[in-house]
Simulated scan of single mutants.
Amino acid sequence: MAEPPTPAAFAQLLRDEGVTVVEVSDWQDHNRNHKGPWGPVHGVMIHHTVTKGTARTVEICRDGHDALPGPLCHGVIAKDGRVHLVGYGRANHAGLGDGDVLAAVIADRTAPVDNEADTDGNRYFYGFECENLGDGHDPWPAAQLEAIERVAAAICRHHGWDPLSVIGHLEWQPGKVDPRGFTMDWMRGKVADRLKVDKPTTPLPAPRRPVVDLSKLVNAAKTNPKMAARTVTYSGVKTVEAALVDAGYLAKTYLDGHYGTTTVAAYAAWQRHLGYSGTAADGIPGKTSLSKLGKRYGFDVVA
């Protein structure tokens, strides 16, 4: 029987494998244990999220929704390779699956094709949601794939498991297709290669955060076509637009790097979200509102 390590030990074993870990609020105590036991654990299950934007994805996986309360996994593996821990214990990620697959995972043998939904997978598996639309077109960056490999290897190394203990949701529950965009046989091969290393390799480099210059951004914002006769472009505009997309106020980023009227309206919505109103919510960034946007959605601000 394999019992899960303590939350602190779990986070550390991931770091020891070179994983960049982000601990989200009360993840250590956030679980669904009141609905049933978690453990003994027998494997690692990989999913894709069908969502866009890391911040939104992490929030959904932590909190869940009306039909499926969170946590929806133990960790969210973002496109930049960071692993956001959102829960520890029973999580709503696996659902009912094939008991014959579970038996194969326990025995370290190749699993049969799943054709039943008769066994509670939330009890027996670690679950990791990977930020991806799952449409077969959304890319899987190298940093994200390596993070999946490292996470799976870290858990297998801790428990002494074979890579056959790492499965996809599509191998567990009939009708599921996740993860879509790579094969689990390929990923298990990567995990097997990593487990041959006696000691974990060096950590993945921490992703470098973009920096937005407030004065340049304001200059670009104040010269959009409705405010002046000319426009000013600045590369930081796209960084801010990406954050507004993540926050749900903008549909997409634009390629030109100028602060257009759509971006003004989206930023004004962000200002209103922060409690500003009237002329204080005019869509022109201020230091406080921009710093709060950057802190939440992954960039730094210089004045």
Rank of each mutant, 00 (worst) to 15 (best):
L102S: 01
V245Q: 10
D16S: 14
H137V: 07
H74Q: 14
K35G: 01
L250K: 06
G43M: 13
G136Q: 10
C130S: 13
G99Y: 00
G134N: 01
H169R: 11
Q173C: 13
L244P: 12
W27Q: 11
S291C: 13
L217I: 08
R32E: 07
V301I: 14
T288R: 15
P174L: 05
T253N: 03
V76S: 09
Q28W: 08
W161P: 03
G260C: 10
Q173N: 14
S165K: 13
A55T: 12
A303V: 07
H74N: 05
V76R: 09
V237P: 04
D26C: 01
W186T: 14
P207A: 06
L255W: 13
V105W: 03
H65P: 03
Y267K: 08
T51D: 13
E146I: 01
W161K: 01
G278S: 11
S215F: 07
T288I: 14
V166H: 06
D193H: 11
D16E: 15
E149C: 12
H65M: 11
V22L: 09
R180P: 00
T54I: 12
D185E: 15
D120K: 08
R157N: 03
M1C: 07
Q173D: 09
T202Y: 00
P200I: 07
V302A: 05
H159W: 09
P37Q: 12
A192V: 02
E17L: 01
D135P: 06
W270D: 05
E23K: 13
W140M: 03
P69A: 14
P205S: 06
R209P: 11
C73F: 03
G294S: 10
D26E: 12
E171G: 09
D114W: 01
V19K: 05
S165M: 02
G298A: 08
D114H: 02
N31H: 15
W161C: 03
G43R: 11
W27I: 10
G236T: 10
T54P: 06
E23S: 13
A91Q: 06
L133S: 12
R62P: 07
A78N: 10
D138F: 00
E23M: 10
G39Q: 06
G168K: 09
P210Y: 02
A265Q: 08
G99P: 01
R123L: 04
F182P: 04
H158R: 12
T253D: 05
F125Q: 08
V212S: 03
A243Y: 02
S165Y: 02
T119G: 00
C61N: 15
D114F: 00
P112I: 02
T263S: 10
G260Q: 12
E131Q: 13
T279Y: 11
Y249N: 14
D213P: 00
A107W: 00
V21E: 04
